[in-house]
């Protein structure tokens, strides 16, 4: 449990961090809350030569409202997301989801930006990020670009972020309270075997699913099937499509078949809950 040798640098601004990333390239890893990187380093699965700690860049930690959206800084912790009055009132899905992440210690240290960039296929945030159609800002040597949630998650542990970019901000829309996140936990790790986030509005619903496939996905078949119907029967019919078109993961904790089943069950439950709110 002793990491290999590494250099530690603590930039004081995003620009400085980006410059460091440029300089060290593949040899560097960005550290935010450290809840994915540090365990991998302690097991020596990850052996970066340089660790760039962005956790002390004060300007990266905030939750604020601007023009109908809520902007969340990259190093905002899960517990800050969970307890934010602003989010609880105006985008409760994110707070609800954050409350399901890990345990209290993890939530106190882990950050939304770190979690999204790591893109663990069973992490919680991707589900609401997709369902909310969030926007994600990435800053690199070429400046800032904004990536839509559905473009962000590329593959297993892989996102649209380039090696020399840093995720700086996530923006989510203000929503009605008709949202829900329902998750079945992997018993040991607490990660999602199937986590389903639903954002409902009179015109339709959006469904994000995590834990089931190599990357989180929008359950578009569910969204299309339910349309603007709201009956229990319609919910049940729609939820049955929650794992359509994906190749579910299977491991010692849940077979692919069971994960797909849980996706359907949790989709039904999340729809029911969101629509009852």
């Amino acid at each position: 449990m002793y990491p290999a040798n590494f250099d530690y640098v603590r930039p004081s601004s995003v620009d400085e961090a980006v410059a460091l990333l440029q300089k060290h390239g593949d040899d560097a890893k960005v550290l935010a809350g450290g809840h994915s990187l540090i365990p991998a380093m302690k097991l020596r699965l990850a052996q970066p030569h340089v660790v760039i700690d962005i956790g002390r860049i004060a300007t990266l930690s905030y939750i604020r409202e601007a023009g109908g959206t809520i902007a969340i800084g990259a190093t905002t912790t899960h517990s800050e997301v969970e307890t934010s009055k602003l989010l609880r009132e105006k985008c409760p899905l994110l707070s609800e989801t954050a409350s399901h992440i890990g345990d209290l210690q993890v939530r106190n240290k882990g950050t939304i930006g770190g979690s999204l960039v790591h893109a663990d296929p069973a992490s919680d945030y991707p589900a609401p990020i997709l369902a909310l159609e969030a926007e994600i800002d990435l800053v690199g040597p070429r400046g800032k670009r904004t990536v839509r949630a559905d473009q962000f998650f590329v593959d297993l542990l892989q996102t649209a972020i380039a090696a020399d970019e840093i995720l700086t901000e996530v923006r989510v829309p203000v929503t009605s309270p008709s949202v829900a996140y329902i998750k079945t936990e992997q018993k040991a790790s607490g990660f999602a075997l199937a986590g389903v986030a639903v954002v409902a509005s009179p015109s339709g619903v959006r469904v994000g699913v995590t834990g089931v496939a190599p990357k989180a996905y929008r359950a578009t078949a569910v969204e299309q099937t339910i349309g603007n119907q709201r009956t229990a029967h319609a919910i049940e019919l729609a939820a049955a499509h929650a794992a359509d078109g994906v190749e579910p993961l299977g491991d010692i904790h849940a077979s692919a078949q069971f994960r797909a089943h849980l996706a359907r069950v949790n989709t039904r439950r999340a729809l029911e809950r969101a629509l009852s709110r």
Binding site: L43, P121, A122, D155, L156, P214, L249, I252
Partner: peptide, 17 residues
């Protein structure tokens, strides 16, 4: 080895990728 002990949940997905 280590990858089997700690990474079992990601092995299949990684191999596929």
């Amino acid at each position: 080895g280590l990858i089997a002990a700690v990474g079992s949940r990601l092995i299949e997905a990684t191999a596929r990728k």
